[in-house]
Deep mutational scan, measured.
Amino acid sequence: YDEVAAQGEVVRKLKAEKSPKAKINEAVECLLSLKAQYKEKTGKEYIPGQPP
């Protein structure tokens, strides 16, 4: 859960800094992968601010 939240912060920071699109896309792919792992382990969708 904490990893997903941390990666979400990374994506937000990159977007706020107007980073190159390729770098943002890479961070988003990582975030989506973490969300998929979270769902696989818990059986639930990741919802920000609602730990399992």
Score class of each variant (00 low, 15 high):
Y1A: 00
Y1K: 01
Y1M: 14
Y1C: 01
Y1R: 02
D2H: 15
D2L: 15
D2W: 14
E3Q: 14
E3A: 01
E3G: 00
E3K: 15
E3R: 03
E3L: 10
V4M: 03
V4G: 00
V4W: 00
V4C: 13
V4T: 00
V4A: 00
A5E: 13
A6W: 04
A6S: 10
A6C: 02
A6P: 14
A6Q: 15
G8N: 13
G8K: 11
V10I: 15
V11R: 02
R12V: 06
L14V: 02
L14Y: 06
L14K: 08
K15N: 06
K15I: 06
K15Y: 07
A16D: 14
A16C: 06
A16I: 07
A16P: 02
A16V: 08
E17C: 07
E17H: 06
K18V: 02
K18H: 13
P20A: 10
P20S: 14
P20N: 14
K21Y: 06
K21L: 10
K21G: 12
K21F: 07
A22M: 14
I24R: 05
I24W: 01
I24Q: 06
N25M: 14
N25T: 13
N25V: 07
N25E: 12
N25A: 11
E26P: 03
E26D: 11
E26N: 07
A27C: 00
A27S: 05
V28Q: 10
V28D: 09
V28G: 06
E29R: 12
E29I: 04
E29Y: 06
E29L: 05
C30W: 10
C30V: 12
C30A: 12
C30N: 07
L31K: 03
L32T: 14
L32K: 14
L32S: 13
S33G: 12
S33M: 11
S33T: 13
S33P: 03
L34P: 07
L34V: 02
K35G: 02
K35R: 09
K35W: 00
K35Q: 06
A36Y: 05
A36G: 04
A36P: 02
Q37I: 10
Q37R: 11
Q37P: 00
Q37C: 06
Y38E: 02
Y38M: 03
K39Q: 09
K39G: 02
K39D: 02
K39S: 05
E40W: 04
E40K: 14
E40D: 07
K41F: 08
T42N: 14
T42C: 08
G43F: 01
G43N: 08
G43C: 03
G43K: 11
G43Q: 04
G43H: 03
K44Y: 04
E45C: 06
Y46W: 13
I47Q: 10
I47M: 11
I47N: 12
P48A: 12
G49R: 09
G49A: 10
G49W: 06
G49V: 10
G49T: 09
G49I: 09
Q50N: 08
Q50I: 09
Q50M: 11
P51W: 06
P51T: 06
